[in-house]
Design a protein around this nucleic acid. Structure first.
Lengths: 241, 241
DNA sequence: AGGTGTTGACTGACCAGTCAATCTATTTGG
DNA sequence: CCAAATAGATTGACTGGTCAGTCAACACCT
């Protein structure tokens, strides 16, 4: 289930600094092992970025939050920017992978889209701070990180576009609405819901998150109007009401 | 027509700094009048913010772009922040007004939503830089301007929510999808399209903008699936392609 | 003579990134 | 099995540059 993947912790997503770190890996093989300062810093950064925003926080804040010395941040990361880059890529890569997997499976479109929506919403549910940072500081940040990662971001849109395209080829989705637009619409709805939660404009909670998954798919696929298709959600969904 | 209102120039949307400025208004009554430095600074700021981002630009950049001295920026605005605040409020206020007007008129939901979508897209078409700044620096910026203006932003969502609610009461929109969610979805689709244009992920141009208006309404109201409602749009554009 | 508009040099605070020193663990060679 | 050597981890004071905001002076109008 996609929800499972949403929590990809403890795995220490490998290098990023580029330096050799075989020694650290070996040491970690033991028992409790050293608290892996690199991870500690990343996690602290998420909290600090979410709380104060990337621009408003100082590197010292991250170090303090992580309980390490200032200089250590620069031992593991080349710059303040690189910390954010790492956080973003770590998560976005996992999402791209999931979308590719979903795309490969022989599922009805609704299910594919639902899987994607579920992944993103579960990601938020599992670590709201991280998703807040990604959306606020990267995904929408032209002239800074958004620009840097535009290629990676675009990949996601294109993968979703492919799914829509296929549905159109199969005659399940209307052909008049360009796949590219449809993909943006779908993603836009999800991101706006997260934004609503981030800004505390919408009620949050497991229940709401579950409901949101259905709402997203139902809205985008079936439309808001009565008389439009009202498919069931996950399982069998052909019955017209 | 909503498109007309999207271009609210030459009118100098009045005060914002709060100080008395009757003198300026009187002088402007003449002919060409002084170039209204305040406006000059605001327009320059839009360009600079759009080009470099709010955080990455210096106040000196704004002054240079406007062709005025550094200190003059502080004569008209209390701070760098206030410049952005002014730009945002100026435009957002107009949008709120439009939504209220649209809401008051006895139109079918599709038309109301189309009018709103048209306004926002026309705004972008008319001044992409300004919309870029508003979306990138305010609308999605938790922990900075988004937080400051959250109330004003929320107003828009709620007004749209009211329109959806009404459609539900009339039995035109499905009741299962909470109006609040639906409103967010609608707005989210629009903002994501703008984001696509801002990041150059979607083709731009008058033609695309026009098409987008229909796509937004059609997607959100009728859904992507075949068999869903395929309503016409505003004027005489019933023909499918 | 007084007020508003305009100028740009200056300052005070702030902060990313550097670096030399210290500490800890692992390896080597005797 | 231990001491010296090596390498990485960790520390935090310090620096160099940046920039928002101030201010005193000047320009122009009435």
């Amino acid at each position: 289930m996609s929800a499972a993947r949403a929590s990809g912790d403890g795995t220490t997503p490998s290098s990023q600094t580029g330096s050799g770190e075989a020694g650290a890996a070996a040491r970690r093989g033991g028992a409790k092992a050293a608290p892996d300062k690199r991870r500690l810093i990343l996690d602290a950064a998420v909290r600090v970025f979410a709380r104060q925003g990337f621009h408003a926080c100082r590197v010292a804040d991250i170090a303090d939050e992580a309980g390490v010395a200032y200089g250590l941040v620069y031992h593991y990361f080349g710059s303040k920017d690189e910390v954010l880059d790492t956080l973003f890529l770590e998560r976005w890569q996992v999402m791209l992978e999931l979308i590719r997997e979903v795309d490969a499976e022989p599922l009805p479109v609704r299910e594919k889209l639902r899987a994607i929506a579920s992944f993103i919403i579960d990601s938020y549910s599992h670590d709201p701070d991280l998703m807040k940072v990604i959306i606020v500081e990267v995904t929408r940040a032209a002239n800074s990180f958004g620009d840097t990662h535009i290629g990676t971001i675009r990949d996601a849109y294109e993968l979703i576009g492919k799914i829509v395209q296929q549905a159109q080829d199969e005659g399940v989705f209307k052909a008049e609405i360009e796949a590219r637009f449809a993909a943006m619409a779908f993603y836009g709805v999800i991101e706006q819901l997260l934004t609503g939660w981030i800004f505390d404009l919408l009620p949050q909670g497991e229940e709401e998150f579950e409901r949101a998954k259905s709402v997203v798919v139902e809205t985008v696929c079936g439309g808001l109007e009565v008389g439009a298709v009202s498919g069931g959600t996950t399982a069998g969904n052909r019955l017209p009401r």
